[in-house]
Design a protein around this nucleic acid. Sequence first.
DNA 1: GCCAACGTTGGC
DNA 2: GCCAACGTTGGC
Length: 533
Amino acid sequence: MAEAWQDCPALGPGWKRREAFRKSGASCGRSDIYYRSPTGEKIRSKIELTRYLGPACDLTLFDFRQGILCHPVPKTHPLAVPSKKKKKTSKPAKAKKQQVGPQRSEVRKETPREGNKVAPATALLPVTASAPAPVPVPVSAPAPAPAPLCCENCGIHLSWDGIKRERRRTLCKDCRAQRIAFNREQRMFKRVGCGECTACLVKEDCGVCSICCLQLPNDVASGLFCKCEQRRCLRIVEKGKYDHSKRGPRVASRRHSRAPPLPPHAASQHPEPTELHISDQTPTAPAEFVYDCVEEDELKRLLPSIGPGSEEEARLLPHHTHQKRSASTRQLQLSSPLKAPLAVVTTPPGPVQDSGKRQAGSGFVLPQPDTDLVYLQEGTSSLMQVPGPAAASTENPAQETQGSAPGWVVALPQVKQEKADAPEEWTAVTTFLTSSTVQPGFLSKASGLDPPPVKREPPGPEEDGEENKEDDVSESAPAEEIGGIGTPVITEIFSLGGTRLRDAEAWLPRLHKLLAVNENEYFTELQLKEEIL
DNA sequence: GCCAACGTTGGC
DNA sequence: GCCAACGTTGGC
């Protein structure tokens, strides 16, 4: 006689589970597990369940026999699962067949095959609808595993290889790279200032403040950034982001009590760990804004110049959307025509940065007519020209830039982009490319400049420092985390549908507009002109 | 024809 | 040897 169908909350509402014990035959006492889907389909095995749910649904942690989701239990767990040894001693093989179903079933439940796979409470409890499953999480939205080997951001399981060293935060490789990139741009933003306040409008150092008198380093690229006291952004100061008790911005030592959110992985649809949410933190920095606002179809609605009267709306954009996504999902495929991508490129400090300096000592380079990609070089705030067409594909920017079609691509540090010509055609593609997508030497090849020798810092301490400051927006970003020193890392790529900005006159006003929308958190037109001229 | 129950098999 | 997976059978 088959047991009654019972709810299986682990699979979600509507799912039923039944365990039928065999009462006769050679397999007497054995139990068969059946599931019934909300649509009434009967499933007899995990394979069938996977087939039914689709390959996207990972049933690795789903205990088919017990109908629960289980998480890996550390071997040191005090309530370790009884070993098979106990099973064998308690149930002689000969007596096995003489047992009636339920008794044998209980024995089987005590001895799951994957010894430490199932939480002990789960294994020892009868599986009934009323019995509280330890972790009855629907498969469609698995809860973050409490195990220490789970990425705090996306929840995926990590191998010990991925966390060889002790870290304050346990993040997978992708999430860590995203965080580092994010923090880099945060740091970048902090160094630039609003560009509109009276302090930012000061063009020259005062020469009398402590910074100037002491000739403290003012090298953004190196990270030793001590800005003239008279030129420190007042807005940032007002926000308390400058610490006047110290020389220079407090950026280097500023820490968030909670880490900014990282884009989760697409495969991980479950809620992210709350500690990575910063719902109370207004996303004003460009990178965060991009994370939050520039997304797929929402982009059209969110970008300031897309809809009529949208500029005013756009001022509110950073405050009303908090979307997060993974690196994979950040490769957005938008339906609107995408022709000339607009690449937002950041590169780690290194040779490219130096070559950019050669082109423009002030840090900016006016794009040349035959230049498509303009790299904003992290740290130097400089733009770098890259000949060739705008990359139409985010898959391989290096190849795309070697094409023949001309076009402008204006690179900005993850700044919300505005359509230049036809707002109704404006779409964007946000792409997160790892360094692997850009060939080493790509920049030098594209720019026609050979990168100077790279001064590489010892990786160990810096990486450790990086890891230990992952919730610090001003942390340094070790190149090895992202792709190696000197390797460009494209963090965001926008696509400008059918629009190519040919000269500064074309894009500066628009840039100014979008920057103004962005709460003055980045460059202004004036500052850009000053830098360019 | 449906479905519960049982048998068989191959992988581990 | 155990068991997941699945084929087969027989009752309804």
